[in-house]
Design a protein around this nucleic acid. Structure first.
Lengths: 340, 340
DNA sequence: CAATTTTTGGCAATCGCTTGCCGACCAGTT
DNA sequence: AACTGGTCGGCAAGCGATTGCCAAAAATTG
């Protein structure tokens, strides 16, 4: 290397510094770095070497401005507080990082307005969106799916690819489990009214219990937080049901606590089935029987689908729907029905 | 408004569109939007109205390119999996959003290399960094603190403002609690060797137990995960101690499970004190006595300190250190020492 | 060996916004 | 009436990349 020695003047190096040191034009540097085939091997290697030597990192700002791509994906979740979304975030984070993308995390606070606003405000700064458990209406969803690349998680949409966690089918399984334990009066403890998952879960519950001729109750809606568990527990206990299928584990865990306080024994007096198998479901007291979901994987799959949409490399149209399997995990919170 | 009617040709509007419609130069639009005092009230209002009407959102890319500021903060955590960091993230997320900043979340996987890499790669795309429980060496930390605005959480640094959660002082309190229950043989269950917090906690433990003339043991290091709890429990049980102070709740919860499996009763045979009071500490079995920390608040404070550093508005130098108070929360995992 | 095609690298126009600088305009002072 | 100082808005130069277009060079072909 008999090149010029640029005495790196403190300032972070730009593509021009690299170009000068390597004795080429900036366009060549640009190509060498992001479109390697477009430039001769030896030139490319020289450039790469200079870039490394200079510790050059392209400005994502500038790159984004000129190319229109930001290499960032916004992930919108209703509540960063909720362990369920932690797992989603973990999954997306992982997969995005692997693909060289940045994750823009947004908490929409269970609000459709905030969701819309984020979608709108970030449309320039993100190449695509992942909406977990969107609270948008079908129309809103369809509209934004048309406007930007996006994929939804646990929320079917006409226009956007979707990954759904197939909790409903495991609800059927749970009901079978409960029936086998002698339960016939079952209560569905509902989650947020605007939640698509909640509707699906209820539907599965309703269909299957009708089929089986079970006596059913429904209480709710409740916020998906442990703190709502007390109200949920009281309501459920009041119905006279001997078992509950609860919208999610957070709520179920809250119920467990309240039931214990009230002297209602779980599972002797009341069986509880949660959904999601979040962190904590295995060590609460009693450990929660729940519908285990590959949440993190759902996050990963969502990213893959989104990236496939953004970079339609090889053949065939990309998947429009991914259904993640679930299964019932039986722990201590379900047991034989109390004989009257 | 007898202005021109621009038939918004699908394309997302730029500052130029706003300028034309409002009949001013782009520079005026720019000022009206981000430096309101610099432009006459009526002009400003007209511009704002046009901008709203056009649904104009400035491109953060372009803005960043020309101004050098990105309005984004990178938050680096060792492990997005860990509930402790969830709380941090929640705090930063909240505060950043309130200030109009975007959060760039990065999982450094407990690795100093990844941390350095992220710091380097993102220096252009983030205005500042928040490092939670950094794994960097003091030298590395000092260097990067000199290079970019940053604040650390639970990691003192010469150059960067820091927010520390004062767990050590509550460790003293825990020891007092254990002593009052008759414990004299106490085991410290250590976390990651590279963790600054771990060192501080051990130090506090060591000093106080020596002072009190207690018999101490130390086991570890263990990874801060529930899955490491089994090994930790076995090691701790083997020491003959009647009580443990555990590096964090995750590990403590894991120990609880293992101890139960082994038939070691908590707290009858062994008392356990955790650290952090994470999600789950209150509903595990038995509920965990732990050192409660205002984790989310720590995240918020970190953001405030960072923003203060970035926008040194009013008087005085900004805080260099924030100490978050902690307290012992007694639940079911500690009890009287077994009499030999 | 001339003609043609393929590689390779440079030029220069953008991308959308910010900001230093300047001039116009408008009081308020001498 | 000339001067001074402050407001307000426009001009135009960037910011740091990407990329369409083109020409020189190299490789291939007839």
């Amino acid at each position: 290397m008999a090149g010029v020695e640029l005495p790196s003047p403190d300032r972070t190096p730009t593509i021009r510094d690299v170009a000068e040191l390597a004795g080429v034009a900036t366009s060549t540097v640009s190509r060498a770095l992001s479109n390697p085939d477009r430039v001769n091997r030896v030139t490319r290697e020289r450039i790469q070497q200079v870039a490394a030597q200079l510790n050059y990192v392209p400005s994502s700002q500038a790159r984004g401005l000129s190319s229109g791509r930001t290499q960032a994906i916004a992930v919108l979740v209703p509540d960063v507080t909720n362990p369920f979304y932690f797992d989603i975030i973990r999954g997306t984070q992982h997969q995005l990082k692997a693909a060289g993308y940045t994750q823009l995390l947004v908490d929409t606070e269970e609000s459709a307005e905030m969701e819309e606003e984020a979608l709108h405000k970030m449309r320039r700064s993100a190449d695509g969106f992942i909406l977990a458990a969107s609270r948008l209406t079908d129309a809103q969803l369809a509209e934004s799916a048309a406007a930007h690349p996006m994929v939804t998680i646990n929320r079917a949409s006409a226009n956007a690819p979707t990954v759904v966690i197939d909790t409903p089918s495991a609800i059927v399984q749970s009901l079978e489990h409960l029936a086998s334990l002698g339960h016939s009066k079952i209560c569905f403890v509902g989650g947020p009214a605007s939640s698509w998952s909640n509707a699906k879960r209820w539907k599965a519950f309703e269909d299957e219990t009708r089929e089986r001729g079970m006596t059913t109750f429904r209480v709710g809606p409740f916020a998906p937080k442990t703190t709502s568990g007390a109200a949920a527990a009281d309501a459920a206990a009041h119905t006279g049901a001997t078992a509950c299928i609860v919208f999610n584990d957070l709520l179920a865990i809250g119920m467990l606590q309240r039931l214990r306080e009230r002297g209602v024994r779980v599972p002797e007096d009341m069986s509880i089935v949660g959904c999601d198998d979040i962190f904590g479901a295995d060590f609460c007291n009693p450990p929660l029987t729940t519908i285990a979901s590959p949440i993190e994987q759902a996050g990963r799959v969502a990213v893959s689908m989104l990236l496939a949409q953004l970079n339609p490399l090889q053949g065939g149209p990309s998947r429009r729907l991914a259904v993640m399997p679930t299964h019932l995990t039986i722990r201590g919170s379900t047991g034989p029905a109390r004989v009257p």
